[in-house]
């Protein structure tokens, strides 16, 4: 298959997913609301004590992303399962890698909405500060790579659990341990960015490179494993 055809298939499915999510609304609002609640809960937990340190802010950001993200991803695949539409896609002549990649990208878009809620929440409730455009660029890069790595793992397991009994319980048990490198690198990188010195930004760049390598590895594994894991019932 030519690369242009493959990209065309991914684009077709991604457009479909975005259209469906925009019309349903349910997933977008629920995920964003859940993310806002997590940030609020954390802010209440630290109420009255010393101001939260940058380590805490970095931790809150990535924990909120992981929790709200997985809720959204899990629900999105559950809806596909209810209508059996994922099976419909797998039975069509589309490349299964295109199915996986489009799911990964649509889930990454959904998780980006969590960022839209969590980052302003941290700025407002935790007094998070960024030292200039360079730091913002680093943070956005870190978030983008972290989200890609997380969704690469979550999309693979969400699809592969199929109709397994107890899949709602199994999914976080499989996804969270495997995404520890993403959460660790994300939180450490965010801490370095928020710390704001020249040296810490150099350290943050190292975490960015780590995440990039992790993404390449996890997406490659996902493309390779998606077909055998999702097709055998």
């Amino acid at each position: 298959m030519s690369p242009a055809r493959f990209v065309g298939q991914v684009w077709l499915l991604l457009r479909k997913d975005v259209r469906v999510e925009l019309r349903a609304g349910e997933l977008i609002y629920a995920t964003m609301l859940f993310a806002a609640i997590i940030v609020l809960l954390f802010s209440f937990a630290f109420l009255g004590g010393a101001p939260p340190t940058v380590e805490v802010m970095a931790g809150v950001l990535w924990v909120a992303l992981a929790l709200a993200g997985l809720v959204g991803i899990s629900r999105s695949f559950e809806r596909e399962r209810e209508a059996d539409t994922l099976r419909g896609l797998l039975l069509s002549p589309l490349s299964r890698s295109a199915v996986y990649l489009s799911k990964l990208l649509s889930m990454a878009l959904l998780m980006s909405l969590v960022v839209v809620v969590v980052v302003p929440g941290l700025l407002l409730l935790f007094g998070m500060q960024l030292s200039g455009a360079g730091a913002l660029g680093h943070l956005l890069g870190l978030l983008a790579l972290g989200i890609l790595g997380f969704t690469a793992i979550a999309s693979l397991f969400s699809a592969s659990l199929g109709r397994a009994r107890g899949r709602e319980l199994l999914l976080p048990l499989l996804v969270y341990p495997l995404s520890v490198p993403v959460l660790l690198a994300g939180a450490r990188g965010t801490y370095d960015i928020l710390y704001g010195t020249q040296e810490s930004l150099i350290d943050a760049a190292r975490w960015l490179r780590f995440l990039l390598a992790f993404d390449v590895l996890s997406i490659t594994c996902g493309l390779w494993l998606f077909e055998p894991l999702s097709t055998n019932e």
């Binding site: 479909k16 259209r19 469906v20 019309r23 349903a24 209508a83 059996d84 539409t85 099976r87 419909g88 039975l91």
Partner: peptide, 15 residues
């Protein structure tokens, strides 16, 4: 070359 009709309609509810 395959056409499969199952118990579920396999259509997108929002479309």
């Amino acid at each position: 070359c395959l056409g499969v009709l199952s118990h579920e309609p396999r259509c997108y509810a929002e479309l």
